[in-house]
Amino acid sequence: MPNIEVRPATLRDAKAIAQVHTFAVQEAYRGLLPEDYLRALKPEERQAYWREAIEYCEPQVMVALEGDKVVGFVGYDRSRDPKSRPTTGEIWAIYAAPSHWQQGVGLALWDAARDGLLEEGCTTATVWIPLCNERALRFHETAGFKRELATAKTSLVGGVRIEEIRLKRALH
């Protein structure tokens, strides 16, 4: 089990976050999304998004470090869902480097995000997960999230229809 430290992201972390994001998506969705779509994903294209998120705290971003290497990240803030209560937070994104899956990185990031959402006055948290991503569903359900079956929606990703569902849990 690696020694993982979690801290707020800095602008210097944007490149590493973009790399973790890209490589984790490519691995998690291999066989579920078209291979050419996954190969075309480039960290450079995500780096600007993460720089802006860090700079403007929208979402708030935390990184997981092993030594001085970024091995995961979480972005969280108030829920983006229309009609959600102001006390509802959302995990916008949470990813660990594939080399660090099942080593406690995701849990450390979730703990940090939960603490941050509680500090913001949130009482519940939600997250949207593609139904085909069984690893992410298992992780969130282990962390206490429950599926909200009536929220299922379809998104088009890489020319493939992906069913997503919202999961929710109390923060206390």
Rank of each mutant, 00 (worst) to 15 (best):
Asp36Met: 12
Thr10Lys: 12
Tyr95His: 09
Ala150Pro: 00
Arg169Asp: 01
Ser99Thr: 12
Val25Gly: 07
Glu5Thr: 14
Asp81Ala: 00
Leu156Thr: 10
Met62Leu: 15
Pro59Leu: 15
Leu149Glu: 12
Glu164Ala: 10
Arg78Phe: 15
Leu65Cys: 10
Ala150Gly: 10
Arg85Gly: 15
Val20Cys: 07
Asp115Ser: 11
Lys83Gly: 08
Pro34Ser: 14
Leu171Lys: 02
Lys42Ala: 14
Asp68Ser: 13
Gly67Val: 03
Leu107Lys: 14
Pro2Met: 09
Lys168Phe: 08
Gly72Val: 04
Asp13Ala: 12
Thr124Ile: 06
Thr154Gly: 04
Ala152Gln: 05
Lys146Pro: 00
Arg7Cys: 07
Ala113Trp: 05
Arg161Thr: 04
Tyr56Leu: 15
Cys57Met: 09
Phe145Pro: 01
Glu27Tyr: 01
Pro86Gln: 13
Gly159Glu: 12
Ala16Asp: 05
Asp68Lys: 14
Glu163Ala: 14
Phe23Thr: 11
Trp50Gln: 01
Pro82Cys: 11
Arg78Val: 08
Tyr37Asp: 02
Glu55Trp: 00
Ala9Asp: 05
Glu27Leu: 00
Gln102Trp: 06
Arg85Met: 13
Ala28Glu: 03
Val105Met: 07
Trp110Pro: 01
Ile54Gln: 07
Arg39Glu: 15
Thr126Val: 04
Thr22Asp: 02
Glu163Asp: 14
Ile94Arg: 00
Lys153Gln: 11
Leu149Cys: 03
Glu27Asn: 08
Phe73Val: 08
Glu58Trp: 00
Leu171Asp: 07
Thr154Phe: 06
Pro130Asp: 09
Lys168Glu: 06
Ala108Val: 07
Gly116Met: 04
Lys83Pro: 00
Glu45Arg: 10
Gln102Tyr: 03
Arg135Asp: 15
Val61Ala: 08
Leu156His: 03
Gln60Trp: 09
Gly106Tyr: 10
Asn3Lys: 03
Ala143Cys: 14
Gly67Asn: 10
Gly72Phe: 04
Phe73Gly: 06
Glu27Val: 08
Phe23Ile: 08
Arg12Gly: 12
Gln60Asp: 14
Glu66Pro: 07
Pro2Ile: 02
Ala64Ser: 07
Lys83Arg: 06
Ile165Gln: 03
Gln47Cys: 14
Arg147Gln: 02
Glu52Cys: 07
Thr124Cys: 11
Glu35Met: 11
Glu119Phe: 01
Thr88Asp: 09
Ala170Asn: 11
Arg30Pro: 00
Ala170Phe: 04
Gly31Lys: 02
Val70Gln: 03
Glu141Asp: 11
Leu41Gly: 10
Arg7Pro: 02
Ala93Met: 07
Lys83Ile: 06
Glu66Tyr: 13
Ala97Asp: 15
Tyr49Pro: 01
Leu171Phe: 10
Ser99Tyr: 04
His172Gln: 05
Arg135Ser: 10
Gly159Lys: 12
Ile129Cys: 02
Leu118Pro: 00
Thr126Pro: 02
Thr88Asn: 07
Met62Trp: 07
Ser79Leu: 05
Pro43Met: 03
Ala96Trp: 03
Ala40Ile: 09
Glu141Thr: 13
Leu38His: 02
Arg138Trp: 08
Ile17Glu: 00
Asp111Ile: 13
Ala108Leu: 06
Trp101Glu: 09
His21Trp: 12
Thr87Trp: 05
